[in-house]
Design a protein around this nucleic acid. Structure first.
Lengths: 192, 192
DNA sequence: TAAAAACGGTGACAAATGTCCTCGTTTAGG
DNA sequence: CCTAAACGAGGACATTTGTCACCGTTTTTA
């Protein structure tokens, strides 16, 4: 399991085998079956998590019980609730597994230590966060400027392959439209 | 003008007078009249900008010419296009002044130098970015989960005082609804 | 200070989307 | 392997929102 992470992180940051050992010494491995939770709303998100294999989903629930997907996390991606993780506050997010999933996690204490020891990790992390912010801003822009169909097309371009792994209603939830609306959009697009 | 920044930054990061001098030596002051641009779409955003006085707006324009406000920046706040600034790529954003405005700007080269010299500045900046990401994520969640009226109420709670400084249609644009819809939402709310 | 532009509101109508329902099909899991 | 749940589709209708047009007032600016 850790080997997946090792392969990946070496392509992203300049790290020696000694550095990798630091990661391994503090990493916690975990496997999740479909529908298992990595984080439940109300709990504090205590870990940064790397997805080695499988598929996670982050979502929030409104007062009336509707689920809204904020993020999909396939293998070779990171997930956490940054707000809860940084401030040790109860999270608003649920993170669960959509299929059998293997992850590695680090506590904030341990990961902060890694930052101190490995300057290039901080550079990599900053780049990740910058990319995350850029994508989130783009999503806001789409939400306030584009039609449901345009948002769907953009989603398919940006995340090809996700649709084959998650049920349609979760994509609809991610886009902020009802399941039925997305179904109709897709139907009108098959004709031409 | 610089004195406004000095007062502010001292409340945010632990800095000596010597540190402040480093800021001053590289700062560029600029004043903007109403409707002047700080950044135009297509140009590279070369500066981090601190608003000492006045009010800036960041917005993007769709292909059909509609303006969509991404951010309001009153005095004592920062603005830039992080994506363009970091990568030296042409920006999609316009930033203009809604009233007479005084700003201080630093080039990336100079600001990166400040980061090297002042560790506490990096800590402060990371905190700013984390807050920015949290707010942007919250805005996505509102966009995909809340009604126009709920988003308006949330906006008024989160940014009280903005409505008195900007025309209604810009708030509508920020929220992703038409001017008319926002006008009606406000009308139904005055009755009770 | 006078003309022009911006602004906020509103009615009428159209378009987009949500809600509720039913119905086969597929998939998950005991 | 079999049953229950999940899924995707679609019809009918209600609701929300956008669009267009117009109006009177306020603000800007030449």
């Amino acid at each position: 399991m850790f080997i997946d992470f090792e392969k990946y992180i070496k392509t992203q940051a300049d790290l020696t085998d000694q550095d990798i050992k630091l990661f391994r010494d503090t990493a916690m491995e975990k496997t999740l079956r479909r529908k298992d939770f990595l984080l439940q709303a109300g709990d504090v998100c205590r870990y940064k998590t790397f997805v080695c294999k499988g598929f996670l989903r982050s979502y929030r629930t409104t007062d009336n019980g509707n689920e809204h997907v904020m993020q999909f996390s396939p293998e070779n991606s990171w997930t956490t609730d940054p707000e809860s993780y940084e401030n040790h506050t109860p999270s608003s997010y649920n993170i669960d597994a959509l299929e059998y999933t293997e992850v590695i996690m680090w506590t904030k204490k341990d990961f902060d230590y890694l930052f101190e020891q490995l300057p290039s990790l901080k550079v990599y992390s900053d780049r990740l966060i910058a990319g995350n912010l850029a994508r989130t801003r783009q999503r806001v822009f789409s939400a306030i400027s584009a039609t449901a169909e345009e948002r769907y097309d953009e989603f398919m371009k940006m995340y090809p392959g996700i649709l084959t792994r998650v049920p349609l209603h979760m994509v609809a939830s991610f886009l902020g439209v009802s399941r039925e609306t997305l179904s109709r959009i897709r139907h009108t697009q098959v004709k031409p």
